Computed example of a mutant assay.
Amino acid sequence: MPERAAVACLVLWAPALDRAELRGLMSAEERARYERFAEPFDRARFATARALVRTAMGRATGVAPDLVRFDRRCRYCGGPHGKPRVPGTAVRFSLSHSGGRVVLALAEHAEPGVDVERISARQIGRLAPRVLSARELRDLEAVPPADRPAAYHVYWTRKEAVLKAVGRGLSSSLRGITVSGPDRPAELTEWKADFGPPAIAMSDLRPGPGYAAALAVETSGPIDLTERHLDDPLEVP
């Protein structure tokens, strides 16, 4: 069979900012959500994420960012709780943020999933048995203790990216998914979730020191990845 063409995927990183120009792009519902955040960092991450995705999808659809409309119809059951998308374009997106990082993944005719996490040793001993498959847990326990927090977050971001790509979120068990170890290229190696295995291509990302991040794209072909770090969420290329 001929090799499937690579899926072009653009990953944009932006620092978490909060200013009137970004808030001005929000819908009334988004502004209400913004106001409910008590912590300044939470507000900044939300404002940056909304501005980044609105600016990028506005360019994709040829409309002003504040006029971009999102549809959350589930592709599996038709309910109003699905992965967000913008009607009228083949460009799909995925958002994530943690600490001072906000990341947006864009792909055309394929569903991306992206996740970033700030590395922390807190609660790893309690969380790892709930998140990792038996094989992953054995491999993690073989990692030197000082390196385990970073290794655990590599597993977490890879697995979360896969579930975000297929639009299932954490409704499916992370323990039913096995990915390659942190010392190997990102790859989905085993699937025991409660729905059929998807075709997934994966890549680790470059979030900067102190973070782990991964990209998954629902495709049987390779990913043609472009990763850019912006100084401002409105500077979408």
Rank of each mutant, 00 (worst) to 15 (best):
I119Y: 07
F41S: 14
L104K: 08
L104S: 02
S180Q: 04
G24Q: 14
G181E: 10
V166Y: 12
D204A: 09
L10C: 04
D18K: 07
E3V: 14
C9H: 02
A110K: 09
Q123C: 13
K83M: 04
A146S: 09
K164L: 02
V114F: 01
V91G: 06
F46V: 01
R45C: 06
H229V: 13
Y155L: 02
A32S: 11
P197Y: 11
G176P: 13
V116F: 03
L17Y: 05
S27T: 15
L52C: 07
M57T: 05
R69P: 00
R36K: 14
L174S: 12
K83W: 09
D224L: 15
E35Q: 15
E117R: 04
R23M: 01
A121W: 08
M1C: 13
D71S: 15
G113F: 04
P209A: 15
V131H: 10
V103W: 01
I200D: 04
M202S: 02
L225D: 00
A107S: 07
P197W: 11
A47T: 03
A5R: 15
E187G: 01
T89K: 10
E108H: 14
R130E: 09
R138W: 00
A56V: 03
T219C: 07
E227P: 06
A151H: 11
V116W: 05
L225N: 02
G99L: 04
P87R: 10
A16K: 10
R138E: 12
L67D: 11
A32Q: 14
P129N: 12
P182K: 11
L104F: 02
A44V: 06
S171N: 06
M57H: 11
T55G: 02
G210R: 14
A146F: 09
C74K: 13
T219S: 12
G113R: 04
G100L: 11
R206F: 05
P198Q: 07
G221V: 08
A161E: 00
